[in-house]
C-alpha cells in the first residue's frame, strides 16, 4: 500500500512540476527567440553571400531531465506503440534551447549569421528506468557580413 502511495505521489509531483517546468520553458523560449531573431541560422555549407574574413565556431548545448511522469507514460506507451507526445515536447524544448544558446554566443560576438549548423543528440546518465536526460548540442560557424 505504502509503495503504491509513494508511486502515485511521485507521479503527481512529476506531472504538476514537469508540466510547470515545461510551460515556463516554452514561454521563455518564445521570448528569447524574439531577442535573437536578427541572427540568421543556416545549415548550408557554402555561403552564397559575400562575408567578412574568418569565422568563429560557436555552439550551444543543454541537458534536460526527463520527469517521472514522462518516464511512466513512456513505459506504458511502449506497450501499445504510437506517438509519444511527452518525449516529443522534451526534444523540441531541448533543441530550441540549444539553437538559442548558439545564437546568443553568435550575437555576443557581433555576428550576423551562423552557417552550417549541425544539431547532435546524446543521452546522459542512463539509469535502468530509462534515460536520465537528453543532451542537444548545436554548433556552426558565426560570420559577419561586410
Amino acid at each position: 500500500m505504502g509503495s503504491i502511495l509513494a508511486f502515485l505521489t511521485l507521479l503527481l509531483i512529476g506531472f504538476v512540476f514537469g508540466k510547470m517546468n515545461e510551460m515556463n520553458h516554452f514561454r521563455r523560449l518564445d521570448q528569447d527567440e524574439q531577442t535573437y531573431a536578427h541572427i540568421d541560422v543556416y545549415n548550408i555549407k557554402r555561403p552564397t553571400e559575400p562575408l567578412a574574413a574568418d569565422g568563429v565556431l560557436v555552439s550551444g548545448n543543454v541537458v534536460i531531465a526527463v520527469d517521472y511522469f514522462k518516464v511512466i507514460v513512456a513505459g506504458l506507451k511502449t506497450l501499445i506503440g504510437g506517438q509519444l507526445g511527452t518525449y516529443q515536447s522534451l526534444m523540441t524544448r531541448a533543441r530550441r534551447e540549444a539553437v538559442l544558446r548558439l545564437k546568443r554566443e553568435a550575437s555576443e560576438l557581433g555576428a550576423d549569421a551562423v552557417y552550417n549548423v549541425r544539431i547532435e543528440f546524446s543521452t546522459v546518465g542512463a539509469n535502468p528506468r530509462g534515460v536520465g536526460g537528453v543532451e542537444l548540442f548545436a554548433y556552426g560557424t558565426a560570420v559577419k557580413r561586410p
Partner: peptide, 12 residues
C-alpha cells in the same frame, strides 16, 4: 530532477 524535470545545469 528526474522527478520534476528541468535542466540539468551540472551536466550541461
Amino acid at each position: 530532477k528526474n522527478i520534476v524535470g528541468g535542466e540539468l545545469k551540472g551536466y550541461t
